[in-house]
Amino acid sequence: MKTKLLTTTVVGSYSLPKWLEVIRELHKQGKITDEELEEAYDNAVKSCIKDQELAGIDVITDGELRRETMVYFFTKRIYGFKNDGKMKPIGNLDPSIQMPDPIIFDKVRRTGSIGIARHWKFLKEHTSKDTKVTITGPQMLAKRATNEYYSDERELIRDLAEILREEIIEVVQAGCKLVQIDEPVWVGYPEDLPWLVEIFNWMIDGIDAKFCLHICYGNYQLKRLFKGQYADLFPALLDVNAHQLSLEFAVNDAEPLELFKKYGTRDKEIVVGVIDVKDPKVETPEVVANRIKRVFDVIPPEKVWLSPDCGMKFMPRDRAFGKLCAMVRGAEIVRSDL
């Protein structure tokens, strides 16, 4: 990858156009063909690519715009899930934040490609930028479902990790060099971290790609979902074999800095969240630059990547684009100072 000092990227999702939601609903009603739905997805992704290119982002994604949600996209394509469950709280912070619950009724298994590689190929064909793919982690998929089959949660998460490993191998063999695994649930269950790290490391072992692990506090409708703290995950989190750790820094006054100061980074690159996705105001480049400079007391510039705190799916398009532009301009200010 053509990385540079303070490489800019995104966490994954981008502002979801209202018209795309309307077209999805028309497709469910049989008023839009599969081909017409696919054309709509193609156009949405092309628009997302253009925004990231115009903003100047270095490593881009397809905005996850083809995905119903970060969970349903996977559970609808993995055998063992039924997607007709009741409403269930997403996190453990606010029980009123709910979504319909997938149900695990049988041993989960992969029945064919989930589609990550095909979607990444479309992205790569339509940009000259470096790219990455994002994949929802096995614990997130497990915790967002009602388990009516497995007596051992570790077995369930291991089976899901095996499915995702095959999907990762497929997209890497297609040419993708950077894979990000998203596990916002880890913050909510720190007592499970030792064996979760073990499964994560097994899932990516021997695969020839760069891996990033993104951990946040949840971000459905731009709201925090989990009670836990990053401090609950250290130092065990540093045992993951990911090359990068992607964490929120903007919304929490750079909370992870004290943890990296205390425990080090194990020579990992740190993807620093410098855009607060929960704040409706668009940061100025100067605000972003100050957030960036603050981390250099603990993390050397050559080990720092930059991103928003989390995904941008639930914010208006003009706000999302404005925040990306501010991030890139802030990075430019700091580079010139360095």
Rank of each mutant, 00 (worst) to 15 (best):
M1S: 13
M1R: 11
T9D: 01
T9I: 00
V10I: 14
Y14I: 00
S15Y: 06
P17G: 07
E25R: 15
E25A: 14
G30L: 09
E38L: 14
E39N: 11
D42A: 07
I49K: 01
G56V: 06
D58W: 02
I60H: 04
I60L: 02
T61Y: 02
T61R: 03
L65E: 03
L65F: 07
R67L: 00
R67C: 02
T69A: 04
T69G: 06
M70W: 15
M70Y: 14
F73T: 06
T75P: 02
K76D: 14
Y79Q: 10
G80K: 08
F81S: 01
N83R: 06
K86G: 11
M87V: 07
N92G: 10
M99S: 13
I103K: 08
I103G: 09
G115A: 10
R118C: 02
H119A: 10
T127F: 06
S128Y: 01
D130V: 03
K132F: 07
T134D: 02
T136V: 11
E148D: 13
Y149A: 08
D152H: 11
L164R: 00
E166R: 12
Q173R: 14
A174C: 08
C176E: 04
E183R: 08
V187C: 03
L193H: 06
W195H: 14
W195M: 12
F200V: 09
N201W: 06
I204H: 05
G206W: 09
I207C: 00
I215A: 03
C216V: 05
K223N: 10
L225G: 02
G228E: 04
A236I: 13
D239Q: 12
V240H: 03
H243E: 13
E255N: 10
F260Y: 08
K261A: 14
Y263T: 07
D267S: 15
E269T: 15
I275D: 02
I275N: 05
V277I: 15
D279R: 12
D279F: 07
E283R: 08
T284K: 05
A289V: 04
N290P: 03
R294Y: 09
V295S: 11
I299T: 07
C310G: 09
G311Q: 03
K313S: 13
K313R: 15
K313V: 11
P316H: 05
L324H: 06
M327V: 06
A331Y: 01
E332T: 00
V334R: 08
V334A: 11
